[in-house]
Simulated assay, not measured.
Amino acid sequence: MTATGISPTDSRHPVIAQHARTYAATGGHQGHLWNGAPTLLLTTTGRATGLPRRTPLIYGRYHDSYLVVASNAGANDHPDWYLNLLQTPHVTMQVINRIITARARPATDAERLTCWAIMTARWPDYDSYQSRSSRVIPIVVLEPTTAQHPAAKPAGGRR
């Protein structure tokens, strides 16, 4: 559930949707690490529907902020979650068992080189995604706006 009381919609891709549901249900015990990379759950507001949309994404840290990459696996179109946050930059993320509200923004030109290095250290495939895409793949800075608090306790009493 989100702050609005509406459960977020997960990806149309079954494997990605299952990752998000497992992560949320286990308070990040399962799903935080994906193929060796740390992930968070990003919830944006759908630009057409106004409803919450949840996506698991690899993340890095930059000062007090979190970084995610709008790679779309190197496709020439931006992912929906990125288009959503451009319209409504107020987002929620779950990092392991912490829920954090944040303001999302594209990294500035001055930040890009440092942020790209941080993220390719986490997931080297971003370089190959960029090489096959006709667009400059955006890096998003997620700046926390509220104190972090624990996610709802998962079913079965585990954290």
Rank of each mutant, 00 (worst) to 15 (best):
A17D: 05
L83Q: 11
D10R: 04
A48S: 14
A24S: 05
T43D: 05
R21A: 15
D77S: 11
G28P: 05
M119I: 14
S11G: 07
T146Y: 12
A24V: 15
N72K: 14
T88Y: 08
S128D: 05
W34S: 07
H149Y: 13
Q30W: 06
V136R: 03
A155L: 06
T55H: 02
I118F: 04
A24T: 15
T146H: 15
T44G: 03
T44M: 05
H78G: 02
P89Y: 10
N72H: 15
D109E: 15
L57F: 00
P89A: 11
G5M: 07
H13C: 00
P38W: 10
A147T: 13
G60W: 04
W81V: 06
A48E: 11
Q148K: 02
L42T: 07
H149E: 10
R21L: 13
L40A: 08
P52L: 02
N76A: 13
V69E: 08
N35Y: 02
I137G: 10
A17S: 12
I100V: 15
L51E: 12
V136F: 01
L86C: 09
I99A: 10
P144G: 04
L40V: 13
P38K: 03
I100C: 04
H63E: 12
P150V: 13
I100G: 09
R122I: 15
M1L: 13
D109L: 10
N84M: 11
Y126I: 11
R122P: 01
A104L: 03
A75E: 13
S128L: 13
M1N: 03
S71T: 12
T39C: 04
Q30V: 15
V69I: 14
Q130P: 00
V15H: 11
E143D: 14
N84H: 13
H78T: 13
P106F: 00
D125K: 06
R47E: 13
L51G: 10
D10M: 03
R158Q: 06
R61P: 01
I99M: 04
T49L: 03
P138L: 12
Q148Y: 01
A102K: 04
N97H: 14
W81Q: 09
R54S: 07
S65K: 06
A3S: 12
